[in-house]
């Protein structure tokens, strides 16, 4: 099936599906759509695709890589001109991670964000995180920051496995 045979709405859906499949280079079990950072994909009448992404963290080093990957996926799918735009507002929050994305994170060994985390303004408040392997909530934080800006390091005191926790990222106050 060639792109030319698709009507505009079908092309738009196709372009979205192509961009949506791009994995996060640092957390490859989830896609840009699972994370909620793919905001919009538009195809104009000349066939130019514009994918709009929003960065997770201001300094996330994966941002440039993700933009390049989305553009190249669209090229490979047959869209000759694909542009990627960055949109800062509204600011990304982990509330935009889909339920499917959360399941994928868990299966990969990363605990997804806990929705009712304590406000980070409260010092020494602990977030109850369930172990992604044995589901026990008898876990403890090892470090507030991890191998990527979005994660903290935890340990399960039940099955003794260390694991990453995808921090809750949204404005509390």
């Amino acid at each position: 099936m060639s792109l030319e045979s698709l009507d505009h709405a079908a092309r738009q859906r196709d372009a979205w599906q192509v961009a949506a499949k791009v994995p996060d280079p640092e957390v490859p079990c989830v896609t840009v759509a699972d994370l909620g950072i793919l905001r919009e994909v538009k195809v104009d009448t000349s066939g130019t695709v514009t994918a709009t992404l929003t960065p997770t963290y201001s300094g996330c080093p994966a941002t440039a890589m993700i933009e390049a990957m989305v553009a190249s996926a669209l090229h490979e799918a047959g869209y000759p001109t694909a542009r990627v735009e960055t949109r800062l507002s509204p600011a990304w929050t982990t509330d935009w991670i889909t339920d499917e994305g959360r399941d994928k994170l868990r299966a990969y060994g990363i605990a997804p964000p806990v929705a009712n985390s304590p406000d980070p303004d409260t010092l020494f408040a602990e977030t109850r995180v369930a172990c992604p392997r044995c589901e026990s909530t008898a876990t403890e934080q090892l470090a507030a920051f991890g191998s990527t800006p979005c994660k903290a390091q935890y340990r399960c005191t039940q099955c003794h496995e260390p694991f990453d926790y995808f921090k809750c990222h949204r404005q509390f106050s």
């Binding site: 201001s58 600011a91 990304w92 980070p120 303004d121 010092l123 507030a144 921090k167």
Partner: peptide
């Protein structure tokens, strides 16, 4: 200024963690 407000909205969430982490170490 909408652009500045958008930059700020991203930064404020990050700074929450900086303040918390550094305050805990001061203590």
């Amino acid at each position: 200024d909408e652009r500045l407000a958008a930059i700020a909205a991203k930064a404020v969430v990050e700074l929450q963690y900086h303040r918390r982490h550094s305050a805990e170490w001061v203590i």
